[in-house]
Computed example of a mutant assay.
Amino acid sequence: MMAQIVYFKEWLIVFYKKHVDVVLPVLKLVFAFFTMCMFQGMFPYNMVINKPGIFLVLSAAQAFLPISVLYYMISILIMINLWKVSMDIFLGFVIFSIICSLAFVRVDRKHAVILIVTAVMFYLKLEYLLPVLLGMIVGFGAILPAAAGVVVYFLSVYMTDVSTLLTTSSSSSFGMGLQRIVNLMLIDKKLLVFLITFSLIIFITTLLCHLFYERAWLFAIFIGHIAMILLLLFGRLIFELDYKIWRLFLEMILGIGCCYIYRFFRGIGDVSRIEKASFEDDEYFYYVKAVPKIKVTQKDRNVTDIKSGENEDDILFDDITEETDLFDGNREEAEKE
């Protein structure tokens, strides 16, 4: 069973590399369309732009553009929806988007994906799957974009209250909506707990993954998830938060499975074939431990067709007959001469 899974992994990797020019644009199109629909669901205030056809056209364009362009598309989508509610909140989000772009989106394109995925996973109630996985895949660089994604999601939650307030208020002045958003962020202990937990878990997981030990990734998975549960339970106890315990443990199990799947496709070391080497130069001694990755190549099968015995006898008989006829013909010619 394990060999078949490894065969499938190798086949999938080869298939992706062979057809990357087709597979990658399709994946980018599906991802862009899905995330745009999710963000429109998080900020559903402008019905003019709430049309799947518009999202599909933009996603088709995104399929052939760098992934960081999707960050700017989604930012504009959120701005259009915020414009419908409050001008001051719109301006505040413009400043936030510019800061994020200068701080980490321009540094690495995958940081834009982290921000987007973090906000979407919170919206889908699957946020506990992320911290350990981000620490394993990205490392320390995932802390800032993940924190920005948490803030974007909580902004969508606060906007429900602010839009109701601005709609029912008879005397709404400029800056009232943004002030309300800032006040909610400052007093929301749940936001604080998630920001601290995500940052610490990404930091701890990254440190454990970089230990000089062949099974460091295994310790990172379990210790990272256990630490996340302890931090969230501690925050729930101290601040009397309302997130559900059963969902936390269920997503922890799912998160461990996701980490194992990622590590399997990246390559698991065969610790039974560890090789050690040492060498030196004028200043240092070097000791190297090499752990080969588990790889299984499927054997090529050569099939040889073997004809039946009757056919072989017929062929052999025909050959003998031809040779006999040739010999008789040569003998007759010799007698005539």
Rank of each mutant, 00 (worst) to 15 (best):
S59A: 15
F31M: 13
M47F: 07
F43S: 06
D21L: 14
V30Y: 03
K28D: 07
F43A: 03
P25D: 10
F15W: 13
L24D: 00
L56F: 15
A32V: 09
G41D: 09
Y16W: 08
L56I: 12
M42C: 07
S59T: 06
G41L: 06
V30T: 09
P25V: 10
V26S: 08
F55E: 02
I13V: 11
S59Y: 09
Q40T: 01
D21H: 12
F55R: 04
K28R: 13
I13K: 07
F33C: 08
F55G: 02
A32I: 09
L29R: 10
I13R: 01
Q40I: 00
L29G: 15
F31Q: 07
L58Y: 06
K17G: 15
V48I: 09
K18T: 15
T35C: 11
V14N: 11
F34H: 07
V30L: 14
V23F: 04
V26E: 02
Y16Q: 04
K17R: 14
C37V: 05
C37W: 04
I49D: 04
M42I: 06
M42S: 03
P44R: 02
Y16E: 07
L27C: 13
F34K: 07
T35W: 06
V22W: 07
V14H: 08
V30W: 04
P52A: 14
C37P: 00
L27Q: 05
V30K: 02
K17P: 02
V57R: 05
Y16N: 03
V30M: 10
L29H: 12
M38F: 07
V20W: 02
Q40Y: 00
V26W: 06
I13M: 08
Y45H: 04
C37M: 10
K18D: 15
V23W: 01
L24I: 01
V14P: 00
V30C: 10
L29T: 15
K28P: 03
D21T: 12
L24C: 00
A32E: 11
V30N: 05
V30A: 12
K51V: 12
P44Q: 02
A32T: 10
L29S: 15
K51A: 11
L56M: 15
I54K: 08
N46M: 02
P52N: 15
L58I: 13
D21P: 01
V26F: 12
C37N: 09
I13G: 00
M38Y: 05
I54Y: 15
N50R: 03
I49Q: 04
I49A: 09
V20K: 07
F39S: 11
F55M: 09
L24P: 00
H19M: 07
